[in-house]
Every structure is written in structure tokens, then in C-alpha cells.
Design a protein around this nucleic acid. Structure first.
Lengths: 354, 354
DNA sequence: TACCGCAGAGAAAGCCCTTTCCCGCAGGGA
DNA sequence: TCCCTGCGGGAAAGGGCTTTCTCTGCGGTA
């Protein structure tokens, strides 16, 4: 690889001058030398060593981002928002997938710190895990102490700036909608119980049912992976245990799509026989059939806010921005079926007694 | 930020010793000093400066990847394959989204070169653009000349190692299937015509029709963005111009989903009134309703192969691995409707003459 | 006893840039 | 004529780390 001094030598100038030309320094350089340097750069196909540059320059410009998985639509949307602001400000993003592995999350914080990022953004649910949370906060604090900025998206256990989707209100919205449609036997297809996102959404749901004087018993909840297959599997388990269910709330849209797949496999008509409500409103939600009724979260906006927070002026006290959830009515949630409303259990498929 | 010499000073050893302890060098260090260094690292929350390390070490280990957009399922799958091998070999991936902007692609090659990546992988369609292709090849050649390894996925204009999905065969498969089902009026919802992927798939389709003594006239092709909205829009245009169409081939699954949306909006039953075939078999294909009949590409495998190529031994002549396409029959392609088979045009919706 | 070899530690030379500091020179004012 | 100023350029000092080379002191051999 050609180096700066190769270029300088070839152009017959000092490395200092070469550097100034290449970086468009404010220091003036005569046109003749400039030409010579540029020619040498082209001839040698010179590209500056980014590590050397980063080392030599003092100011850090890249921003580190830790998400569960960029290719998961939830995070893809958030990332889009992050990118928008970062690009506007000419900043590079280093994106890391933790795949919801706490250890990997911790490692990535170190990695990014080592890469001298100017700021760190963690997106995705927190964990009900004291030890981990403490460790993470220590690392973040250490990073903050050396001038790094930190923001989290959707995890409240951290002490710095935060952007919070209102998961609880979203759960409430889903619950109220279903209650309003007359459903009483509501099952929940939930993500891992260790995630705060799961418990927050569940809490909102509970509150909505509570206002109707009802409960959400544990037997009507199934915890599984927060993805399509998890949703499919949890739905199957739920249905096996509780065939008279008239509605299912999936705690994210991927799970809802899995739920829909299971219902289709069992020939249960949505929403005529059973209603489904998702969560997040990822883009695909409108394209499944029937189109998914879901709780929308302003994902892109969340990314935008978080990046703005972290690149903006530092405030003495951490800021927490709560972004509202919103119900999007589409075609998977309908009124409770007659039979069920009269509280006669629906015939169980394959049940010999029916 | 604490530096290595801070650690060394605190531990009362030389930076050399500290470095050896921290990196687990083969050079032996007494347990006592080792302990002291480790303690200092913990107390100072020391994290090595990655740029300084990269600069000081000679061997390059990261691999650069340029894709259209990681959150696009097509590339997400490929990336999964890339990651798998890279992780196995303890290599970091630097992933860049070009958003199919040739200039950005060129920039990223430089950027990654500047970051001293050991290898470069470009995934995604090539362009019918001589000037750009030449420029790109020059840059890649320059990189290769300095010891960098290069592989491309799905673009044949490059001279190095390549992994090629058999787009043409895939197009052929789609065409043959539809012909076999009796369709004669087949429309195509295509990606941008500047992409070689588009033309390759189209060529296969043409070949299949050609074998039946038929043609694929330009008026039955609509070019649009390679995404959901592009597919929806192109389908609308196609239908407006040619209401007697009995089948639509979408040149990727995202477009197919858009096509399905448009057909639903126009109350055209799939596959009873009109058939749809997609391309790629992205995960969501099986979850739309009706489930999408499509051409499967071994996306993850493509990533695996490309990364293996680039990390494996160098061969004197570039290798090209062609991976086969495969038809996945699901529910969107059915036999041509009776009326159309008898070549009586289907009533045009809203057509006053019908 | 003299010497060799080796283990373990440190000194110092890079790695490739950026940027400050300094120098020489030409032009303008006193 | 002399001095000052300002401009264009180079020398050199980092930036933080790795790694080679060098040095010291010890145990073992001749």
C-alpha cells in the first residue's frame, strides 16, 4: 500500500504539504505543488490509512450503535432514523448486532469504546437481570466519564439519555381495543419474559383488562422467541391449552405473523373466529392477509431522536423522551364471535366430543 | 481515556510488559507482574485504542462488505452467510449500504481500503454502465494489487472471484412454470433496467417463452424500483395497459408483495383470476396469503461461499461459483382461468363496454 | 572460576498520519 | 536601507500501540 510519504516523495514535496493538499487544509498551497500532489495520488492510487488518520486527529466522529439485529424490521426502522441524522452531520455509524446476547452487548460496548466512537446508542429491550444491568451501567458510566455520550432506546434501567416508546400504553391500547370488541378470552403470545419490553407491554395489557374487572392469568400467556417462529409455536401451545380463545395479542408483529400462520394451518378464520393484534407496525404488517391490526410505534422517529440527543448539547440531567404508541386498525381484529360471546366454547378441532 | 502507558505506570512496569500481558503474548511474564497489570487495567477501565493497535500491527483482519441495504431481506440473508464464516474465523465485518448508488459504491471501496480490510465483498446486482464498471474494476484491481482479496456476489462484470446465483435459470424456471399452467398473457414487474440482475432474469424468462414459440414484448414489462412500492406501482401500470393479463412475474419477492397488494386492491383473486410468481424466496414469502410461489436462491449459501472464497487460499485464476435457482411452488400460481384460456379477454374492471 | 545460555524485563524503533512550530523569502512601509 | 509582515513550505513532535532488540542477572556446564 502506498503511504503518504510515497506520495510526497513522488510529488517532490514534504509529507506535510501532501497532507494539506489531500485534506483540503486551510493552509494555502501553491497550485503547482497541489497539482503535483494530486497527480501522485492518482498515479499511486493512494488512499489514506484511516487508522493512522483517526490516531493522528484528535476529534472522534464515528457513532457506535448496538442493536439486536439490523435485519429485524424493528431495528431496521430505528436504524434508518439513526442514519438520517448521522449522515446529515457527516458521521459514520458502526452498527453491531448483539442478537440479544448480554455478553455480546458488553463486548460491543468495549469494542466501540476501543474504536473511539464519539457516542454510543443502545437500542432494544433491557433485561430483567440485575447483575448484567449493573455491569452494563458501569461500562457505560466509564465511557461517559471519558467524554463519551450515551443514549438508549427502549431500555429504562440506564441512567443517561433515553428514548422510550410507550410500550405500556401500547399494550393498554391493544387490550382496550379487544375488550371494546367484546373479547373476554384473550391469549398472549409474548416475547422472552426476561425482556423489559415484554413485561411492559404485558403490564399495559393487564391494565386494560383490569379496567374491565378482568385479569390476565399466566395460563393465557406463552413466552417464546420474539420472532415469527416463536409466535407460531406459542400460538399453537396457547390454542392447545385454551381452545376457546377468541383473541390473541402478539407482543410484536413478527410473532403476530407467526400466529397468523398457525391459525391458517388450523383453519381458524381471522377475524371471524379469532382476532389478532400485533405490536410495532412494521412495514410488512399491511401486506399480510388479512392486514394486521397492530400498535404502531414511531420507530424511525425514535432513531432520529436518539441520535439528536447524543449529538446535541449535553444537558446536566439526563433527558428521557417518551414517544407515544398508536393503534392501527386493520383487518385482523373483529368483534367477538356470537358463540363465544354467549360464552359457549367453540368446538375444538379434532375434539372427539364435538 | 486511559492509555497503555497509564496502565504501565500504575502497575510499575514498562508499556512493553503491559502490552504483552494484555494481548496474551507468547513472551512469558511473571505472575506477579501479570497480576499487577491486570489490576491496573481493571482499575482504569482500560480499553486499548483500536486504531493504534491496527496501526501498529501489520496483519489486517477485518473484511469489508458492500451491499445495497442490509435490512433488505435479500441482503440480510446473504449477510447472515457472510457473518457465519467470518465469525468462525474471528473476523470483524464492516458492512456498508450503498443503496444502489454507484458513486457511493465507489466511495465505500475507498473507505474500506482506507480501513485496511483484508478482503472486500460486493454483493448485489451489477450495472449496465460501462464507465462505472471500468472505474469500479480499476479500484478493485488497485486494491487487489496491494494484496487485498475481492469477491463479488451476483455481478459478473468483475474479473475476480465470484459467486453467481443463476438468475437466468431462475427466470427460465418461472417462465416454464407459468407456460406449463397454460398462461400466455404474462406480464413482468421488473426492477430497474440498468441492473444486470433484471436483465438476466428477464433473459431466462424470454428463453422459456421462446421455447413455446412466444415472445415477451416490451409492453408487457414495467420497470420500477426493486421494492414493494415499485412492485405495486408497476403492477398497476401493467394492469391498466393490459387488463387481459393472466399472470405476473415479479423479479423479486418484495415486488411480488407489492403486486399482491395491488391485485388485492383491485379485487383480483390470486391465483383464480391471475397468477403471481416471485423471485428470491425471502422468508416472508411463505407468510403472505396466498403463500408466494417463487424462485428460490440459496442466499445464505451464497454468503458462505463468497466469504470462504475470499478467506481461503488464493488461486491463480479467479473462481466463479454458480449456485442454482429452484422453483418453490406455493399458492399464487395456478392454471390459467378458463375464459382467458379460450382467449376471450377478461372483463375489464370499470370498463363501460363490459 | 570462567563462560554460556536463557528467562524476563525494558528501551526504542516503528506503523502512518496530522498539525504545530519554525524558517526563508519577498514585498511594503518607514 | 532596514525592518516588519505575511505567505508558502518543511521539520518534527506527537497519537497509542506492538515488537524487535538489548540488557541484566541467574543457573548450569566445562
Amino acid at each position: 500500500m502506498a503511504t503518504l510519504s510515497d506520495v510526497a516523495r513522488r510529488a517532490g514535496v514534504s509529507p506535510a504539504t501532501a497532507s494539506r493538499v489531500i485534506n483540503g487544509s486551510s493552509k494555502p498551497v501553491t497550485d503547482e505543488l497541489r497539482e503535483r500532489v494530486l497527480a501522485a495520488v492518482a498515479e499511486l492510487q493512494y488512499v489514506p490509512n484511516a487508522h493512522a488518520q483517526l490516531l493522528a486527529r484528535s476529534h472522534r466522529s464515528a457513532v457506535g450503535v448496538i442493536v439486536h439485529d439490523v435485519s429485524d424490521p424493528y431495528f431496521a426502522e430505528i436504524t434508518r432514523g439513526l442514519q438520517r441524522i448521522a449522515t446529515d452531520q457527516g458521521r459514520l455509524l458502526m452498527i453491531c448486532n448483539s442478537y440479544r446476547d448480554p455478553d455480546r452487548e458488553l463486548e460491543y460496548v468495549e469494542l466501540l469504546r476501543g474504536h473511539q466512537v464519539a457516542a454510543l446508542i443502545l437500542a432494544g429491550s433491557g433485561y430483567h437481570d440485575e447483575a448484567f444491568t449493573r455491569q452494563l451501567n458501569e461500562k457505560l458510566a466509564a465511557y461517559g466519564a471519558t467524554g463519551g455520550r450515551v443514549a438508549v432506546i427502549g431500555r429504562h434501567e440506564h441512567s443517561g439519555d433515553a428514548v422510550m416508546p410507550d410500550n405500556r400504553a401500547g399494550g393498554y391500547l391493544a387490550g382496550r381495543e379487544l375488550c371494546g370488541l367484546g373479547h373476554r378470552a384473550i391469549g398472549v403470545v409474548a416475547g422472552p419474559r426476561i425482556l423489559t419490553t415484554t413485561t411492559d407491554r404485558l403490564a399495559g395489557l393487564r391494565q386494560a383488562l383490569g379496567e374491565q374487572g378482568r385479569e390476565l392469568p399466566e395460563r393465557r400467556i406463552r413466552y417464546a422467541e420474539f420472532d415469527r417462529d416463536g409466535g407460531a409455536e406459542a400460538t399453537a401451545r396457547l390454542l392447545d391449552a385454551d381452545p376457546e380463545l377468541t383473541a390473541i395479542v402478539a407482543l410484536n408483529d413478527s410473532m403476530a405473523i407467526g400466529a397468523l400462520a398457525t391459525l391458517r394451518a388450523r383453519s381458524l378464520a381471522v377475524p371471524q373466529q379469532i382476532s389478532v393484534v400485533g405490536f410495532d407496525d412494521m412495514p410488512i404488517a399491511r401486506d399480510v392477509t388479512p392486514a394486521l391490526t397492530t400498535v404502531r410505534l414511531p420507530l424511525v422517529e425514535m432513531g432520529v431522536r436518539a441520535m439528536s440527543l447524543v449529538l446535541g448539547a449535553e444537558t446536566p440531567t439526563p433527558r428521557v423522551e417518551v414517544l407515544p404508541a398508536e393503534l392501527v386498525r386493520r383487518d385482523t381484529a373483529g368483534p367477538v364471535p356470537r358463540a363465544a360471546a354467549g360464552s359457549a366454547p367453540r368446538a375444538r378441532r379434532g375434539d372427539p366430543s364435538s
